[in-house]
């Protein structure tokens, strides 16, 4: 595998006031890897995601993706470069239908102009039909084809998580960041999720980085792991080596090895 890294994170620091939430973190991801970011609560995992997606300012260090500098770019620019994400506390557009949630995410690929939209030109109609078809396709992929007309906020928790993944897929991302995708899911749902994530990588050729506390899922799914503790990257490697890593075990002792 001579492929160069797709995502490069170099000396990333994020500081809130006097608190260093993320401190000199370096890692890189090759295309189409399934990677995990783990660590005890409060280790700075979500902050790394937020920095990667432009939702919190990077104090120092650099982030580049596909050889483009994305450090401190606004979130929508980062999304345009092919990084999509889900949120730990699910951020669906709760009052809109599932289908509309997905259609919104096609935004950056929309071609027709404002005037086309206002005058409902043939081009507008053609493209809207395409957008809807694409949204249904994505829903089908996560197994929610029959829920397209439901109001997103009314779905059960596990389905909301899947809608959020489908919505992220509408961006046609190269890198998908999943923040605790299995939280609140039962073992069966988690198994389905695991298969779904594998399918995304295999069929859509997407790189996946996920934060997860379910160690069974992480160890079964991920090919590469990064371990954060108090904002520092304390270990990286394949699941086997991480499990036997002394520093990792130490970091988790007393913490929640959930």
């Amino acid at each position: 595998m001579a492929t160069t890294a797709e995502l490069m994170v170099d000396n990333l620091c994020v500081q809130f006031g006097g608190l260093k939430a993320v401190d000199q973190v370096c890692f890189s991801l090759k295309p189409q890897t399934l990677a995990g970011l783990i660590g005890p609560n409060g280790a700075g995992k979500t902050t790394v995601f937020n920095a990667l997606t432009g939702l919190c300012p990077v104090s120092s260090g650099q982030i580049s993706f596909c050889e483009k500098q994305l450090t401190n770019e606004p979130p929508h620019t980062i999304a345009r470069h092919g990084i999509a994400r889900t949120f730990q506390n699910i951020r669906l557009f709760n009052n809109l239908t599932v289908l509309d949630n997905l259609r919104i995410a096609y935004h950056q690929n929309r071609q027709y102009s404002l005037l086309c939209g206002i005058f409902r030109s043939p081009r507008f109609k053609r493209e809207e039909a395409q957008i809807t078809a694409k949204a249904r396709e994505a829903l089908d992929l996560v197994g929610l084809a029959d829920k397209s007309e439901h109001i997103a906020g009314s779905l059960p928790y596990g389905e909301q998580r899947r809608v959020e993944i489908a919505r992220a897929l509408m961006l046609s991302p190269k890198l998908l960041l999943l923040d605790e995708p299995a939280a609140g899911m039962n073992p069966q749902e988690t198994q389905t999720l695991l298969e779904l994530i594998r399918k995304l990588r295999d069929e859509l050729k997407i790189t996946v980085l996920l934060i997860e506390h379910d160690m069974k899922l992480v160890m079964n799914l991920c090919e590469e792991l990064f371990v954060l503790d108090y904002g520092h990257l304390i270990a990286k490697g394949d699941p086997k080596s991480i499990q036997s890593n002394e520093r990792v075990v130490e970091a988790y002792l007393g913490g929640s090895w959930a």
């Binding site: 929508h76 345009r80 994400r85 995410a105 935004h107 950056q108 404002l114 939209g117």
Partner: peptide, 25 residues
């Protein structure tokens, strides 16, 4: 017509959740 186009959907997204909207481009 505006509201029922992609432009209007983007506005709705901003109303519903600005952070999620931004992260969707």
């Amino acid at each position: 017509n505006f509201v029922n186009s992609d432009y209007g959907r983007a506005c709705l997204a901003v109303r519903e959740d600005e952070i999620a909207a931004e992260s969707l481009g």
